[in-house]
Computed example of a mutant assay.
Amino acid sequence: MTATPPGSTAHSWPPCPHGAKALLRDHLGRLVLVKPRYNDRRHYLVGGALEPGEDFEHALTREVWEETGLHRHPGRLLVVVQVPADEGRGKPAGLDLIFDVEPLAPGEAETIRLPPDELSDVQFIAFDDIDAWTLPPLARTIRAAHRALVQGVTALLPPYLST
Rank of each mutant, 00 (worst) to 15 (best):
P36H: 11
D26A: 04
F127T: 08
V80Y: 02
D128G: 08
P115N: 08
V83P: 00
T68E: 13
T111N: 07
P17T: 03
K35R: 14
L135R: 09
T141F: 00
V101Y: 04
L114H: 08
P136F: 01
D55Q: 03
P106N: 06
T2D: 14
V80R: 14
A139F: 06
G69M: 15
M1P: 01
Y160I: 04
F99H: 10
P52H: 10
A132M: 08
R30F: 05
G94E: 11
L77K: 11
L23I: 02
A109P: 00
V32E: 15
A22E: 13
D100K: 01
A126L: 07
L157G: 07
E110L: 06
Q151F: 02
L114R: 03
L157T: 08
Q123F: 00
L138H: 04
R30G: 09
G88V: 07
D86Q: 09
R113Q: 13
S8P: 00
P84V: 08
P14Q: 14
P136T: 03
V122E: 11
D131N: 03
D131H: 09
Y160F: 15
V79K: 07
G88R: 15
A105F: 01
E57R: 13
L31M: 05
L104F: 01
E110W: 01
H27I: 02
P15Q: 12
A59L: 11
V83W: 02
I112K: 05
E67M: 09
V79T: 09
S162D: 15
P5W: 11
M1E: 14
P92M: 12
R30C: 10
I98Q: 02
G48Q: 10
R140Y: 04
S8F: 07
P52R: 15
Q123E: 15
V81F: 08
A155F: 02
H58R: 12
D100Y: 00
P52I: 09
A10C: 05
K35V: 13
P5Y: 10
L31A: 09
H58C: 09
T2N: 12
F127A: 12
V81H: 13
L24V: 06
V46W: 05
K35M: 08
F56D: 14
T111I: 04
L149H: 09
L161E: 14
K91H: 06
E54N: 07
D131Q: 12
H58P: 00
R37K: 11
R76Y: 02
T2Y: 01
L31N: 12
T154K: 00
F127E: 12
R76D: 14
G94A: 09
I142E: 09
Y44H: 12
V46I: 10
D26Y: 01
D128T: 07
Y44T: 10
G7P: 15
G29V: 07
E102D: 14
R140T: 09
P92H: 07
P106M: 07
A126P: 02
W65A: 00
K21M: 13
F124L: 11
Q123R: 12
V122L: 10
P6L: 06
A144T: 03
V150Q: 12
T9I: 05
L70H: 06
A49C: 05
G48W: 04
